[in-house]
Design a protein around this nucleic acid. Sequence first.
DNA 1: GTAAGTGTGTAGTGTTTAGGAAACATGACG
DNA 2: CGTCATGTTTCCTAAACACTACACACTTAC
Lengths: 117, 117
Amino acid sequence: MTQFGTYVNTARRSLQAHDRRYSLRQVAGRIGVEPGYLSKIERGQVAPPSEAATVRLARELDEDPDVLLALGGKVSSDLQEVIRKRPRLFAQLIRELRDAPDHAVLRIVREVRDGDW
Amino acid sequence: MTQFGTYVNTARRSLQAHDRRYSLRQVAGRIGVEPGYLSKIERGQVAPPSEAATVRLARELDEDPDVLLALGGKVSSDLQEVIRKRPRLFAQLIRELRDAPDHAVLRIVREVRDGDW
DNA sequence: GTAAGTGTGTAGTGTTTAGGAAACATGACG
DNA sequence: CGTCATGTTTCCTAAACACTACACACTTAC
């Protein structure tokens, strides 16, 4: 489960190549964790960080928080809250869509966004 | 946050009224926890139990596991897995549906179930 | 060549999660 | 009365989570 670490490391290094403000230490400083901790995270030596830290890291590296959370084995708590408010409804919907192809889900997203209810 | 406890207590007592196999002790025994623990759960003296125990409890009391998990502040891990596999897609969908009325979501569920993709 | 900056290794910490064990009090039954 | 069965109380804990502190080695910049 070190998908998370390599992903972060790759993203950071690619930024670092053009901007020396993206050293491990500086990024760690900006997202508010110790450098040693971020180092271990990047090398998968510890579990992915908390949701809050993951989101700060994603923003800092200009990555999608939901994707990074997913790599860390988590689901954003605001999504969870939506589900918890109407559990039967959303549980059914999500299970129904488990095996639906991307384009089918996307079609629904668009349908909903064009709000025809 | 003792919604969970009162809900469980009410459900159990209503079963117990007609069937003495639904005493706290017997239910605890069948779902594999100590009576003292279930007692504390029902009175909100401790946090809601783990996902696994919550699901066993729901099945035992013939309640919807997703609803009980929601009352316990949790979201079923199989739903989380669906989201984690395609985080961007599902995050967008769920946020889009956050404020949609029930019937709109239900319409989509039916649409998907009648699988027209 | 030294000061600054880079990443890493080791050790330890406080908090939360998810309960178990055992004794206790109360009431019903025969 | 004794003995079940009921729910409750107190105390304890093992493991996981989310980090910090700090010293170390190496490179680079001036």
